[in-house]
């Protein structure tokens, strides 16, 4: 009996992908994460070239893991996201502020906006996290939490709540992730030396595009209504 693709399975897939992406940006890969990744399927005909390339590169890297891979990945994480210089152009800085402020500094307006969004969603920052709320890992974790909330709302047949959560996700992608992630991805492709982090770059860019299209599809009526209301206001 073939597996059914329905809204629930798509939402579960989105949740798993956001969770994985967030984890991979948060800190260096450890053995446990690597072991779990080795069990994943790498789809290669998703219809999005970046997603396919990302998975193909992950597959190539994960199929060639050897004893030094963890060390290599630790070094590549540092090289890619932290860098060895202070020029503001020597790594793929994972904070939105860096890419949206003229001085390429952390803790700028983007971080304040992001923080306000988290608070509006009833979330507060962990005391243990010191890398800024606009870090890509945290922004992806926010999406993960929102997807989880919409899954729960759907399970309770609370379509209004599910729709609100989905709209929040769509707005977050279009207002934030989509505006700066392509820049960090471009830098990742420049600085990363392992297929692993190149794969992460491709997959992130591709998945955000795919997810935005998915949400646009699901929310077509709401988006149409919202556009109509905006025009009315004018």
């Amino acid at each position: 009996m073939p597996n059914q693709i329905d809204l629930e399975s798509v939402m579960e897939g989105r949740l798993a992908t956001y969770s994985m992406l967030s984890r991979l940006y948060r800190r260096e890969v450890d053995q446990d994460t690597l072991d779990r990744m080795k069990k994943m399927r790498c789809p290669i005909n998703t219809g999005n070239a970046d997603v396919d390339t990302g998975y193909k590169l992950f597959h190539r890297y994960l199929s060639n893991i050897w004893e030094r891979s963890l060390e290599d990945l630790e070094r590549d994480y540092l090289r890619t996201f932290i860098g060895a210089n202070t020029t503001g152009h020597s790594a793929a800085y994972p904070n939105e502020s860096v890419h949206t402020s003229s001085d390429r500094l952390v803790m700028q307006d983007a971080r304040d906006e992001i923080f306000a969004i988290y608070r509006a969603a009833g979330l507060k920052g962990s005391d243990d996290w010191k890398a800024g709320e606009d870090h890509i890992a945290v922004e992806l974790e926010y999406m993960q939490i929102e997807v989880q909330r919409s899954i729960e709302a759907l399970a309770q047949d609370d379509l209004m709540k599910a729709s609100t959560e989905l709209m929040r996700q769509y707005n977050f992608i279009t207002d934030h992730l989509q505006t700066w992630v392509p820049f960090v991805v471009k830098d990742m492709l420049k600085f990363a030396q392992t297929d692993f982090y190149k794969a992460l770059a491709y997959l992130t860019r591709g998945f955000i595009e795919v997810d935005r299209d998915f949400l646009e599809n699901v929310l077509s009526e709401e988006l149409e209504a919202s556009r109509y209301l905006k025009e009315e206001d004018r």
Partner: peptide, 9 residues
């Protein structure tokens, strides 16, 4: 769905 599975080296 076309996919690849990771092989142990």
């Amino acid at each position: 769905l076309d996919y690849l599975e990771v092989e142990e080296r």
